[in-house]
Design a protein around this nucleic acid. Structure first.
Lengths: 333, 333
DNA sequence: CTGTTAGCGCCTTCAG
DNA sequence: CTGAAGGCGCTAACAG
């Protein structure tokens, strides 16, 4: 073997003329080591370019620094932003995310969770509170801490970090009602798959009913949300003959498309037709008219969840952290 | 121990009254197993809810199904789309990505690469061809296959999959010149960090010089690209007094902001001012006027790279795969 | 077709 | 402050 490529602790140990365990201790900064020994070891490590084998380390110490992360999608910038928050917290504590994408499919999520648990992760982070019973059982039995992100509208397994989408749906109505809107339209996407959008929709319907109103019309697309989809769906809705004075969109991607439809067709946002989104994406702010929407703290949700799940031991009783949301008045409603 | 939660192969083996290795074989579908034994084992596995420990499996068999992935950013939808392509290919072959985000920092990338190699990954996927010498050495010595994504403008370590950004920059000029534009402006971001944007800029300058033209003005922002940044930078550029008839943006995020600036200020895109982006993001298509841009095959780049890097052994000589790009005529230039 | 033996590379525990 | 022994859970290689 080339002296300049140590594969194992033993190689380094031989070169430094100490035992394996001493090298291990130096590398992990654990236990008392004389300065002289430490330097000898470090020199050998540098000389050989030794890289520790964390697989072996994990097996021996029964605790990996991998964290399983399951996201429903990467197509919508929302989840990469959550992942960014997760990554920020994890890298601060030397952990690394193993990522799975479920494509909003609970059966796929179950397979991903099982696959990720096989890596003996330090913790698991999943999205939402809706899972198959088997997923829930896997997670419970695993013994590792589990964070469920984005949503707090149902009881979590261990820790939920997010906001009440039902409350957000209600808040949109309150906000828009106060501004004089009465004829509500709704434009949605992916019926039945995006559960959180579904909860916002429910909150909207409830609040509307309580206020003595109702939806005058709605339209939706089958696929995932996108500006193109929002643009098309709004066109469909308006072609339908119901004359809404405001349209609530399932999210900002859709709403931005709605704004584009208005701009392209000479409809004045707000004055002629109110447009309201959800998420508070950067793109909405930069629009010729800033989008009226609800800001969800996506980065924070990821960051808080990852930080807390690693810092504390599993408490006796599940907990939900409400990160809240914020209405962005904007100029489109 | 609860009979219903087997932690190890031995637990399952005991219950099924076979040896560990037999359980191992059944679980991995390896070697000849009698139907009777297989069923007995599977029953025990189901009864106990046994989950394999891949850490131990990896150590024993010297080959993990983890793949290290280093991305420069998650804020721009481009990289999540690459990751989506990677994930699609990996999940098809039972691999899982361990993700690191370098934030366009080569020193951070070096740390991430070292950290990821410690998991004995089946392969490494990094972004771009610009790395520290140490990163390059780490990757070379590791012995695993290495894919470098997005860029093919320099020699790769092992396999590069992407497009020539220099060529893309030149292509924008050719396209716009043919359409009669002569007074080119440029709006950029993050000077010196986003190397691929830098290469497109170089290509643009070269092609412009060769055509007998030059930039009449440019503006840039310090931070990452965004619609807000593009909007502001275009405003700055136009306030500067140089009177470009077309502006090339460092990417679509910036260009979309440019379109917004025009819409908000009554400037007619194309007729009064050409606007040209790069990436071909979905949002650009949905704009009231579809953005003129260059489409980069982001999903494919991730998908092809992940698939090839796992399928084939390392060839003797490094290889670059040109995935090409496509000019999208659009309506803004 | 099934089992035995011997590690994978590292870390825990216990001695010195 | 340093080391020796043993084992983490699994699988390769070789028997039978």
């Amino acid at each position: 073997m080339d002296k300049r490529t140590a594969q194992t602790l033993a190689d380094v140990a031989r070169l430094a003329e100490v035992s394996e365990i001493t090298v291990s201790r130096v590398l992990r900064n654990k236990g008392p080591i004389s300065e002289r020994t430490r330097e000898r070891v470090m020199r050998a490590v540098r000389q050989t370019g030794y890289l520790p084998n964390r697989i072996a380390g994990t097996l021996a110490s029964a605790g990996s620094s991998l964290v399983g992360v399951v996201l429903p999608s990467l197509s919508n910038i929302v989840f990469p932003e959550v992942l960014r928050g997760i990554h920020a917290a994890l890298s601060a504590s030397g952990h690394q995310p193993v990522v799975g994408v479920s494509d909003y499919d609970e059966a796929a999520e179950e397979r991903l969770v099982a696959g990720l648990l096989a890596w003996q992760p330090a913790a698991m982070i999943v999205t939402g509170l809706d899972h198959t019973a088997a997923t829930r059982t896997l997670l419970r039995r695993s013994g590792v801490r589990v964070a469920e992100l984005m949503d707090i509208d149902a009881p979590p397994i261990d820790l939920a970090v997010g906001l009440s989408h039902r409350a957000a749906g209600r808040a949109s109505v309150r906000h828009l009602w106060a501004r004089g809107y009465r004829r509500f339209g709704y434009v949605g996407h992916d019926r039945g798959r995006d559960r959180r959008a579904g909860r916002r929709y429910e909150g909207l319907r409830q609040a509307l009913a309580e206020a003595g109103g109702g939806l005058v019309g709605e339209a939706s697309v089958d696929g995932p949300s996108s500006a193109a989809a929002g643009r098309k769906a709004l066109a469909d809705l308006l072609a339908g003959g119901s004359r809404p004075d405001v349209v609530v969109f399932s999210n900002d991607d859709m709403a931005v498309g709605g704004v584009f439809h208005c701009l392209a067709n000479g409809i004045a946002p707000k004055r002629e037709l109110g447009l309201f989104g959800f998420n508070g994406l950067e793109i909405g702010e930069a629009l010729p008219l800033p989008l009226s929407t609800i800001l969800s703290p996506r980065f924070s949700i990821g960051e808080i969840a990852a930080r807390r799940i690693l810092a504390e031991p599993r408490p006796a009783v599940p907990e939900s952290v409400d990160t809240g949301f914020e209405i962005v008045a904007g100029a489109t409603a």
